[in-house]
């Protein structure tokens, strides 16, 4: 290893030992914890982004879809919001194992074989349900005049949604969407139960080997850091994007 980095690491460990942390444990698992944080961030980033892509059509189906489509979208979000994420994760991860042959036949087994993929898939379906509710709320608070004005200007419905309705709905939903992001960071710990080595998974591994409670405290600090940073950054983003909606005080 680079001698400079090594001495930097050594100094860090010495400092940690000084404030009473177990430096030996940290030198053994420290880097793995950082890997775990990275896996957690990937898990959440991917699912929230893909979830948003799925939530947009779902929300529009709720508002615009006829009897059948809107009911289907409602059933979808009712199911995913009414059942525990742990149960959904087991349903998909272990359920996929049961249908291995069929999945191999249609060439999808490589995807469901991997626990990380299953976690991303489940979390995406789950967060899409919550995000679609947020967006639906946003769309429905807009005055009907918005769409009427767009159509009076000769805009096609699709274009009106893209340029007028959805941007406003997302702006209204920005705060709850941020909450959803934070909730997903926390919920992603569930992936550790199906053998994904996210932050929680690494923590459980380190604890089962060392039996030192300290590792749980590191995990707690890291999760709180992630959540607080996201909360604060999101506040700044929200205030900046919604400055036209701010009420002057």
């Amino acid at each position: 290893m680079d001698p400079f980095l090594a001495s930097l690491g050594g100094g860090f460990l010495w400092l940690m030992g000084l404030i009473g942390l177990n430096a030996d444990l940290m030198s053994r698992y420290g880097l793995r914890f950082l890997d775990g944080v990275w896996v957690t961030l990937q898990l959440v980033g991917l699912s929230v982004f893909l979830g948003l892509a799925l939530a947009l059509p779902l929300a529009i189906a709720r508002v615009e879809g006829g009897k059948f489509l809107s009911r289907a979208a409602f059933t979808y979000s009712y199911f995913f919001r009414g059942t525990p994420l742990l149960a959904q994760t087991f349903l998909i991860y272990y359920g996929a194992g049961q249908f291995r042959e069929q999945l191999t036949d249609i060439g999808l087994w490589w995807f469901f074989r991997d626990a990380f993929n299953c976690a991303v898939f489940t979390f995406t379906l789950n967060t899409a349900a919550y995000q679609s509710e947020i967006l639906r709320g946003g769309i429905q608070t807009l005055a009907a005049g918005q769409m009427e004005a767009a159509q009076a200007l000769g805009l096609h419905r699709v274009l009106a949604y893209r340029k007028i309705i959805l941007p406003q709905a997302i702006a209204i939903g920005l705060r709850p969407l941020g909450n959803e992001l934070v909730l997903m960071i926390k919920a992603s710990a569930i992936a550790s139960v199906i053998t994904v080595y996210d932050l929680m998974g690494v923590t459980r591994l380190a604890f089962s080997r060392s039996y030192d409670m300290e590792v749980y405290l590191w995990a707690a600090v890291l999760y709180l850091l992630m959540v607080e940073i996201i909360r604060r950054v999101w506040n700044v983003i929200e205030r900046r994007l919604n400055r036209h909606l701010m009420v002057s005080r």
């Binding site: 934070v182 960071i185 926390k186 919920a187 992603s188 710990a189 569930i190 550790s192 139960v193 929680m200 923590t203 459980r204 604890f207 409670m213 749980y216 405290l217 995990a219 707690a220 999760y223 709180l224 959540v227 607080e228």
Partner: peptide, 15 residues
């Protein structure tokens, strides 16, 4: 509110 529920559970149980 910031900790994953699973982590709180482990800390309470093992701790």
């Amino acid at each position: 509110r910031g900790l994953p529920e699973l982590l709180t559970l482990f800390i309470v149980y093992y701790g």
